[in-house]
Write a protein that binds this DNA or RNA. Structure first.
Length: 197
DNA sequence: CGACTTTGACCCGCGC
DNA sequence: GCGCGGGTCAAAGTCG
């Protein structure tokens, strides 16, 4: 395994990047829904920008998905349970593609960094890692450890540019940030203004 | 001992 | 219908 793969923001392994401090020296790009947001780019000076598309294969809800979402609450617990298969002992396992196509929007951050994990102030637990086609680096899957919070994120390094890490967030935290690092939350909250959820 | 990571198995959706 | 790729589960292992 090439990546001594990543970590949650809490323990072990190489120290995570504290995003606000990383920004000045790193190029961070954000995207959502593949839309443009006017001149909301804060780029050339090296900080943050929203971008109309992403380099990594990232899923965003289609317009039809969004339509479907209108009649559903976004508590996907129920969605996950239904349509779930069970193993021999009755345990639920594997996969998480609800039949109703109810999915949360994702927000992708592209970061130039040697470290995979951006410390956004929340605590994450890794629940999976997969090899990705056409990418020599695996993709890691994380879930927010806060009770009742279903936010997930994926972290993947690009093959084409090993210095670039793509972090994809799915969902919105239902709790306050857990570390004294509110810059990133501020960024996110601003970001939501420009995206439909 | 609790929190977390690793990893193979499993399932689903989709394209062919 | 089949195979592939993506996403998740959970047992086992690791660490502080």
């Amino acid at each position: 395994m090439f990546l001594s793969s990543s970590s949650s923001s809490s323990t072990r392994q190489p120290p995570p990047i504290h995003l606000p401090f990383m920004l000045p020296t790193s190029t961070v790009t954000m995207s959502s829904h593949g839309r443009e947001f006017g001149n909301r780019f804060v780029d050339e000076t090296g900080f943050l920008r929203l971008m109309p598309s992403v380099e990594a294969p990232i899923w965003f809800p289609s317009s039809s998905d969004e339509t479907n979402n209108n009649n559903n609450n976004h508590d996907d617990e129920q969605v996950k349970i239904s349509g779930k298969r069970k193993g021999e002992d009755g345990r639920v396992k594997g996969g998480d593609k609800p039949k109703g196509k109810v999915r949360k929007p994702r927000y992708a951050f592209q970061t130039r960094s040697h470290v995979d994990i951006l410390d956004d102030g929340y605590r994450w637990r890794k629940y999976g890692q997969k090899a990705v086609k056409n990418n020599k680096f695996p993709r890691s899957y994380y879930r927010c450890t806060s009770q009742g919070c279903n936010v997930k994120k994926q972290v993947q390094r690009l093959t084409r540019d090993e210095g670039v890490v793509v972090t994809t967030y799915e969902g919105v935290h239902s709790h306050p940030i857990e570390k004294s690092n509110d810059n990133f939350e501020h960024i996110l909250s601003q970001f939501q203004i420009y995206t439909s959820i």
